[in-house]
């Protein structure tokens, strides 16, 4: 049975990363933007796991990094959603186009 070559996995993670960047820049809903950031972080996770498994199988650096990224992403999302809820109370919207009190 053939193993999946690392190139394919890296292609997947790079595509996921740029989908995330595109989503972050094009979406107007804050929750969706947060999901786009999550996509970027998962692309990074895939990268770490793939590099660890294919290139440096002797050590566990990459896997540990992945676990920490998942934990931090949860903390970040918690704070971000708390802020968005507070913002919804005053603005009655979570669309970035409608939250623009400040302009030069």
């Amino acid at each position: 049975m053939h193993e999946i070559p690392i190139n394919h996995i890296l292609f997947l993670s790079t595509a996921l990363f740029f989908i995330g960047v595109y989503g972050f820049l094009s979406r107007k809903n804050m929750i969706t933007m947060l999901m786009a950031v999550e996509l970027i972080l998962n692309a990074v996770n895939i990268n770490f796991v793939a590099f660890n498994k294919y290139l440096f199988p002797g050590k566990l650096d990459g896997l540990f990094f992945t676990i920490f990224i998942i934990a931090i992403a949860a903390a970040e999302a918690a704070v971000a959603i708390a802020i968005i809820i507070n913002l919804y109370r005053s603005h009655k919207s979570i669309d970035v186009d409608e939250v623009n009190d400040m302009k030069y």
């Binding site: 990074v44 590099f51 290139l55 971000a80 968005i84």
Partner: peptide
């Protein structure tokens, strides 16, 4: 709250970019 929203979204995004670079460095 608008400024906090802008800060958390842009800093999450920039950490994502930084992390992608770190993962490449690791690779």
């Amino acid at each position: 709250s608008e400024s906090a929203m802008k800060l958390i979204l842009s800093s999450a995004f920039s950490s994502g970019i930084l992390l992608f670079g770190i993962s490449m460095l690791y690779g």
